[in-house]
Amino acid sequence: MAAFVGLCRVTLAVPGSTSLKDKRRVLRSILDRLRQRYALAVAEVGSQDAWQRADIAFACVSSEAGRCEAILAECVRWLETRSDIELLEVDTEIL
């Protein structure tokens, strides 16, 4: 049986952030929601010292490549609805 891994790396702007503490509060909300709602592995993977920028990655596993694509696309759509961030870059890959 084949297994597919969907991986998405997203660069975010957090324009309302005035400190790392502000950014962490916003990111904690995002990461927790992605973990709970979509059962993904999620982490901040870059720009840890920047106040208004964040790089996060999330991954899912499925027996169908199309299911991985659908889950990741739904997560990106959800991120686009948030008013406290802006998506700067999205890179998705199915392995």
Rank of each mutant, 00 (worst) to 15 (best):
C75R: 00
R25E: 11
V76A: 06
R82V: 08
L79P: 05
L72G: 01
D22A: 00
E64H: 11
E80S: 09
A73D: 15
V61D: 10
I85C: 06
V45W: 09
L87I: 15
S47K: 15
Q52H: 01
I30Y: 08
S47D: 11
V76N: 02
L40D: 12
A73V: 06
W78Q: 09
R28L: 08
D84V: 07
V42F: 06
V26S: 01
G46L: 11
R35D: 05
W51T: 13
E69P: 04
T81F: 04
D84W: 12
S62L: 01
E86H: 12
S47C: 12
S62D: 09
K23Y: 06
L27Y: 08
Q36H: 14
V76L: 02
C75G: 01
Y38K: 02
E74C: 06
F58H: 04
E86R: 14
A57K: 07
S29A: 15
A54Q: 07
C68L: 12
A54W: 08
D55G: 07
Q36Y: 07
C75W: 00
V45E: 04
R24F: 10
C60L: 10
R28G: 07
R82Y: 03
C75I: 00
E44K: 12
A70E: 01
S47T: 05
D22E: 07
E64V: 09
I85R: 03
C60G: 04
L20P: 09
R25N: 12
A41R: 12
L79E: 04
R53S: 12
E86T: 13
D84T: 14
A50F: 13
A50W: 13
D55F: 02
V45S: 09
D55M: 09
S19M: 06
K21T: 02
I85L: 05
R53C: 08
R37T: 14
S63H: 15
I85E: 01
R67N: 11
S63T: 13
D22Y: 04
E80W: 00
E86N: 11
Q36E: 15
G46I: 10
C75F: 00
D32G: 04
L40M: 10
Q52N: 02
R35G: 04
L72P: 03
A50M: 15
V61L: 11
D84G: 08
R35P: 03
